[in-house]
């Protein structure tokens, strides 16, 4: 199909769908409405299980199955990207060019910021059931924090501190831990992914039952997964060249 035909076709479809969508949102409850029936139940359930961050309570307790599957999607994507970006016949490993070495000032700042970033990441993971954030956000911070090493020194340093199969293992093991905690709930008879641990007292570090544990499992899984993902992309961009390329 020519470009014009394609755009016209999309235009026609949009001309039908836009007014339909308009009619639909005209029938939706007004923005800012006070009626949220699911919210009323979810907040009550979170308070019953002593989880101060209701969003965490939903993600890890009330609708924990969604999050287990979400971690599984992450695992599938990481393994998928690893397969898709694997070195294939005709690929060669390049030596790094000189411009991959960082500036001294950047090194200094990055080294100074690195421990703080890692601490923040850990803090966000551990307090996920209390304050905004949790395993996912903290895991991403940890993974990106590690990549400050690349800014701080050379790619080789990062490569040495990054035995990838460790990270892949930690991702696999922590996803399995999430599933295992779910099966543990089944074994006690309370139900799959049930919050079987003591709930503790509201707003304490040790409260929320399984929520902080699952938060940590997700934190490890996400940190490992993102490190592996970024590693595949960094390798492709910096290291792997094809024999068919020119000087590259």
């Amino acid at each position: 199909m020519s470009r014009t035909v394609r755009l016209v076709m999309f235009g026609v479809a949009a001309a039908v769908l836009a007014p339909l969508f308009g009619l639909a949102i005209a029938g939706a409850p007004p923005f800012g409405t006070a009626s949220h029936p699911y919210r009323d139940l979810a907040v009550a359930a979170a308070l019953r299980n002593a989880t101060a961050n209701v969003v965490s309570s939903i993600n890890f307790d009330q609708r924990g199955l969604d999050t287990l599957v979400e971690e599984t999607i992450l695992l599938a994507s990481v393994v998928g990207a690893t397969i898709v970006l694997r070195a294939s016949t005709g690929d060669v490993r390049r030596e790094l060019a000189g411009d991959d070495r960082a500036l001294a000032a950047v090194t200094l700042v990055s080294v100074a910021v690195l421990p703080g970033t890692l601490l923040i990441g850990l803090d966000v993971v551990v307090h996920g059931h209390l304050t905004p954030g949790g395993g996912f956000q903290g895991g991403v911070v940890l993974a990106t924090g590690l990549h400050l090493l690349y800014l701080a020194s050379r790619y080789e340093t990062l490569e040495r501190l990054r035995p990838l199969h460790w990270y892949r293992w930690s991702e696999g093991l922590s996803t399995a831990a999430f599933g295992g905690i779910g099966v543990g709930g089944l074994a006690t008879g309370a139900g799959f992914l049930a919050n079987v641990l003591p709930h503790g007292s509201f707003a304490d570090l040790l409260s929320g039952g399984t929520v902080p544990l699952l938060n940590i499992a997700v934190g490890v899984a996400v940190a490992g997964g993102v490190v592996v993902l970024l590693a595949q992309f960094l390798d492709q961009a910096l290291r792997i060249a094809s024999e068919r390329d020119g000087k590259g």
Binding site: L65, L68, T72, L75, V79, R168, W169, G172, L173, T175, A176, G179, G180, G182, V183, L186, F192, L193
Partner: peptide
Amino acid sequence: SALAPLAVVAPILAACVVLV
């Protein structure tokens, strides 16, 4: 009622084992 979640989680756990 335990069978349905087991049928979902078993392949996930096996996948993790295979990966590790």
